[in-house]
Nucleic acid binder design. Sequence first.
DNA 1: GGCCGGTTCAAACGATCGTTTGAGCATACG
DNA 2: CGTATGCTCAAACGATCGTTTGAACCGGCC
Lengths: 208, 208
Amino acid sequence: MIPLVNSSGSTKERILGAAEVLFAQRGFDGASLRQLTAAAGVNLAAVNYHFGSKEKLVEQVFRRRLDALNERRLTALAKVAGADGTTLEDVLAAYIRPALELSHDDNGSLFMRVLARAFAEHDDSLRQFLSENYGHVMRQFTAEFARLLPQLSKQELYWRIDLVTGALTHAMSGFGMIQRKSDVSEHAHREQTAQHLIRFAVAGLSHP
Amino acid sequence: MIPLVNSSGSTKERILGAAEVLFAQRGFDGASLRQLTAAAGVNLAAVNYHFGSKEKLVEQVFRRRLDALNERRLTALAKVAGADGTTLEDVLAAYIRPALELSHDDNGSLFMRVLARAFAEHDDSLRQFLSENYGHVMRQFTAEFARLLPQLSKQELYWRIDLVTGALTHAMSGFGMIQRKSDVSEHAHREQTAQHLIRFAVAGLSHP
DNA sequence: GGCCGGTTCAAACGATCGTTTGAGCATACG
DNA sequence: CGTATGCTCAAACGATCGTTTGAACCGGCC
């Protein structure tokens, strides 16, 4: 007894890593626990032992990345929100840059694909999980967008945010996949991508 | 023998209709042939008899809508492409309006969800099918965008088209789901949606 | 040593999957 | 009439699914 706060260590992490890859490749239904545990090099029963069920595993795959990702987004947002000289670029950078920096991690860029899949799923349970746990993030960003775009009606603003979200989710799910030219550093490539996304989003949000 | 050109009639159509609904709701893997045939009111074996396999059925679900949809897109594009006074709005309307008009049909609006799912799938076989059969549509639109936006580099143009496509696919997959106020006619609602999407896309494509 | 909680393991559970089979039915044609 | 053809149907096929089981292994602690 007296388990350490995180009793796991290796097996849980290996499962989460393999799950991320396979969910991105084959989807939540398409990836079986047998493929998954084989790829992770652990026993089949380990998933139900450590996570309880496949559905709980899916939730943990999201939690592992989204907790840190959205915390970084909110931290970046807090630095500019409500201030006087703040621009749309600042707010959008707070949203976009932490996501692009995921590609630093092992398979972090693959996670954006998993997220894009969840986006396309109109399944209730998964959407409810994401809404309950991370809905406040989008709410805070929306509030700041509303402050910077006072000329837009609420309805108009929601439309534009929805369209921007769709564009960014789609684009970032492909990031890391496009072959970067070898004479461009990864940092430069990411910076270039960030600029594309931010400028596009600014135009989409603020056009007359 | 001597089958009529369309020997089917009812059973094939019923299967396609039920498949569209269930694929939109639960995904290609998540919807089973048993649920599907039960919803269609046909025998389980009818799918393999009429379509050969589940994968072929998926292709036919796409074909049934995309053949007509993309033909209408290209017809509308042909009316404005290459002409002198043509604007970005014209070209985008040719792409967007036929898709929104799908909501006229029984479950046409659900089909956009199916399409959004295929978009999120990075599965090779499905992407290859769509690319082989409908890649020329996006190619023609891209050519016209390039003509109207000569100041953009090829790379820059592709970026923007990719982002716009992501936004439109996402937005249209939700069209028909948002509750339309009863005092707004369906035609007015669709027209309003079209204006939102077109103006957003124009801004995203043509910003400096 | 002996026990114990945490973890791994092979094996099996029942359920459900896509697909196939072969008989039965209907309609059209010689 | 008899035969052939397109289609439907209940039933079964083997495979694979998520999950459960109970034994085996492991470290640390009395």
